[in-house]
Simulated assay, not measured.
Amino acid sequence: MSDYAPGSGDGSGHVIADLRSDTVTRPMPAMREAIARAEVGDDVFGDDPTVNALQERVAALLGKDAALFMSSGTQSNLCALLAHCGRGDEYIVGQLAHAYRYEGGGAAVLGGIQPQPLDNQPDGTIKLADIAAAVKPDDAHFARTRLLALENTWNGQVLPAGYVDAACELARSRGLATHLDGARLFNAAVASGRPVAELARHFDSVSICFSKGLGAPVGSMLAGSRELIRRAHRARKMLGGGLRQAGLLAAAADHALTHHVERLADDHALARRLAEGLAALPGVTVTPPQTNIVFAQVADDRGPALLEHLRSRGVLATGLIGLRFVTHLGVDAAGIEHAIAAAREFFEV
């Protein structure tokens, strides 16, 4: 069971269902108690026992040799790119992937690493033929293609297992390393019924997030070989990511891993209920959700007006790429029913 109080929103008492993202959750008593009890040390010296234990736990969960605590998913992905690639190298990535589109261009700006974005298909995959064609020959005219980066989940969708196998095999056959942005990898595991280690096994590095879905206030983790993590540790230092008594944060992440993974199925069920309710409204087209993210399109450019109406009724969502609603441990069934009723009211006016 979650220890989060649904409907607490932004603290004003007026938000009934905050569906902007699964990052809006707040640590409630049990997690705060875990933070307060955490044994800490100076992690820059490598002697914070709570951080060390969490890194070992995540490495084992993902089937990797080592892991490194990061302050954010953006930092984790960037450290992975810097560990895999040097200046003048290139990574192949989806045009709509988070690591390419929503992380400030860090690989290019800070690492001199050229992204080679390719079109994502509706299910988040990148065509194998497109990947193969994008690998550059060993020629001074071209950046050196070093890495394939995939994302799971992608817009809430679980990458097909057969596709991941084939894409990673293609990468290996062309001498490329592989990185997985698995910010919501536990959502993918729960939705598919497969262990996270199985979802991660083909990748040389994997990034997971504790503040998306799992409900921790801060933190991500990068896992891979010991040598890759050694290089990522150096990159993290350059990026200002050396933290001192980080065990306070690691304790929250550890609590989330222990108590908030299996309950992700509840978020997925609420997303399906929300999608069902929205799809019944006139002029609304909904992509059936696989995990905790619901996308909806509203006819006649009424999306912004619907968002504003929902806000006036205590329901928050985003509209950057269609209407986007994300369920999480801070939203309960009553909040979802309220959101559906508020949307229905908009179309009945």
Rank of each mutant, 00 (worst) to 15 (best):
I293P: 00
A191E: 02
R194P: 03
A296P: 08
L214Y: 05
V294S: 01
H255F: 13
A216Y: 02
A305G: 14
E227H: 13
L239H: 09
V218D: 02
R226G: 15
F295L: 03
K212D: 04
L199E: 03
G242F: 12
R311H: 15
D204S: 06
V286C: 10
G242Y: 11
P282N: 12
N187K: 04
G193P: 06
H255G: 04
L264H: 03
A299F: 07
V196K: 02
A246P: 03
R230Q: 15
K237N: 10
P195G: 07
H268L: 05
L257Y: 06
R234M: 12
I293Q: 01
R244L: 14
G240H: 15
A279F: 11
A235S: 15
L278F: 12
A280L: 13
E198R: 13
F203T: 02
R201F: 07
A197Y: 05
R273D: 06
L307W: 05
V284S: 08
S220W: 01
T287G: 06
I293E: 00
A275R: 00
T291Y: 03
S312T: 15
D301G: 13
R234F: 10
F203N: 02
R244A: 14
R194C: 08
E227F: 09
G314T: 10
G241C: 09
R230L: 13
V298D: 00
H255R: 06
Q245G: 07
G193R: 13
A189I: 06
F210Y: 08
G240E: 15
H268T: 05
G277V: 10
G219N: 05
T285H: 12
E276K: 13
T291M: 07
K237T: 15
L281W: 10
R226D: 15
V298Q: 01
G283A: 14
R263I: 15
P282K: 11
E308V: 13
V196Q: 02
L222F: 09
S211F: 03
S192V: 11
G193M: 11
T287N: 07
A197T: 08
V218G: 01
L264R: 04
G241Y: 04
M221C: 12
L239W: 05
N292P: 03
L257N: 08
T291I: 08
Q297R: 14
K237C: 10
R231F: 06
A191K: 04
S205F: 07
V315R: 09
G242H: 13
I208Q: 02
G314V: 11
V315Q: 10
L316N: 09
S220N: 05
T287P: 02
D204E: 11
A275T: 00
L222T: 04
P304Y: 08
A305F: 14
P217D: 05
R194L: 14
H260Y: 09
F210T: 01
P195H: 08
A250F: 05
A275H: 00
V206N: 02
V284H: 07
R231I: 06
L264V: 07
F203V: 09
L274S: 05
R201L: 09
A256M: 05
L306W: 04
